[in-house]
Design a protein around this nucleic acid. Structure first.
Lengths: 247, 247
DNA sequence: CGGATACTTGAGGGTTGTCAAAATATGTGG
DNA sequence: CCACATATTTTGACAACCCTCAAGTATCCG
């Protein structure tokens, strides 16, 4: 990935959130970005930090999490290229959770100041970013439904559906039914409120029933219709279409 | 409550999110509002709707929820006077969940168009509203931690702490340790991923141990320190202070 | 006052957690 | 490229938290 493509990731993402004029795209290309490569299992921002920049995922994968005093961990979401997981830090000073790498990941840091300048000048961009934080919130809400009211089988099936759809939306799926899946069973458990052991048993069921195959670090969905039905997956909450004109 | 006070609720809330100039306050007072009174257990907006206005709670209490096909329900949050629970509808067309009344409630509807006009003219207001949706997201995230990783006792204690603090923040607590609590045990269960029966048993424990008293429809915290400790309640996520200047 | 809603309590069961250990995969240095 | 250390996956036995079902009591409200 070469430097001129960094902004492309961002633009491609924002175009799923708003129609951008050439001038706006030009302004986005002008944003200063500091690119940094991280190894696996490293924190990008930590609970208690007051970051002065936002991070854009270029390659690899991040996750958002909180660890309680006694070691219990809740993972609140996984982030793929194009995502800006700490966009919220533009408006709230202190991080109430951490963001770390799942695998070796490159990230572009964009100073808050620069983003605020672009936002002040281009309301369409500001609204697209606002919209991104709102879609994030919709994903949290749906996770709440899973954690509070769905069985382990439903939760796991739902996460698999969501990841495939999101990878496809940014053009990074290997094919129509296959995408990267660098998430361990322990991490899956922490994201879904389950233990490693139980995640393992449920995945065994899903494989046995011919719904999915997990090989190496990739996910292949063998029977999308049945997986979708089990998960009751409805991509509405991702708000990938039907966005609203604000002008 | 008389009409001139409607905008005061909104201004009071936004002042917890940003410093407003007199001109900005004046613009907010000029927002057209249609006030409507609802009975208990009525929907304000429903999943699938495409609202053209936002609702501001004036008196009473609302809750945000989603019902699955088979009747399982997840409540995603409770809303008190000053809150704007469907602010997100400014930026995503279709409601992916519903908002209903817990008790008889009066609500002011503000047309999206008018809010967008004010936002375009007063970036501080737009940023305050953006910040509000971001704080909402922080609350969803913390709910995920509870649902995924905390025991029934911890979850219930946490919700009680949060409600008292939020009522105090908008000046509507009866006193330092008492506030309204018009939530049934069934609704508590749907918010916390538990059954009515289990909520009842846990509340019995909390009362027996001298942590709280629930009388009529109000909550009194008898031992704040122990309740806070049990819940591991840390109000950081409500972002009631330490907001960030964006100019 | 009467019907509906909400709360309370008991008995028993199931999904999921805990503990423990073995098998397999992954990664790294020599 | 192999050997070893580490992380991850897998399996089993057992326990616990919370659920389900059921019935009775209290409370609210017209």
């Amino acid at each position: 990935m070469n430097p001129s493509q960094y902004a492309d990731r961002l633009i491609r993402k924002l175009e799923t959130l708003a129609d951008l004029s050439d001038e706006e795209k030009h302004a986005l290309r002008g944003l200063p970005m500091t690119v940094k490569a991280f190894g696996a299992d490293q924190d990008i921002v930590r609970e208690g930090d007051c970051p002065m920049e936002c991070c854009l995922v270029l390659t690899g994968m991040l996750f958002r999490y909180l660890v309680l005093d006694d070691g219990r961990r809740q993972i609140m979401g996984f982030y793929i290229p194009g995502d800006i997981p700490d966009l919220q830090s533009l408006h709230i000073t202190i991080m109430d959770h951490s963001v770390g790498t799942l695998v070796p990941t490159t990230v572009a840091f964009i100073p808050h100041q620069s983003l605020n300048d672009v936002n002040a000048r281009y309301p369409t961009v500001a609204n697209a970013l606002w919209r991104d934080t709102i879609v994030d919130a919709a994903m949290f809400r749906l996770s709440m439904v899973g954690l509070g009211r769905k069985s382990a089988h439903e939760r796991i099936a739902h996460l698999l559906c969501e990841l495939l759809v999101r990878f496809k939306a940014v053009g990074l799926a290997d094919d129509e039914r296959t995408c990267a899946f660098p998430i361990t069973q322990g991490e899956l458990g922490d994201a879904l409120g389950l233990t490693t052991v139980h995640v393992n048993r449920v995945l065994r069921d899903l494989k046995r029933d011919g719904l999915v195959t997990l090989r190496g670090r990739s996910l292949h969905v063998d029977d999308w219709e049945r997986l979708r039905e089990l998960a009751k997956f409805d991509p509405t909450y991702l708000h990938l279409e039907g966005r609203k004109a604000t002008e």
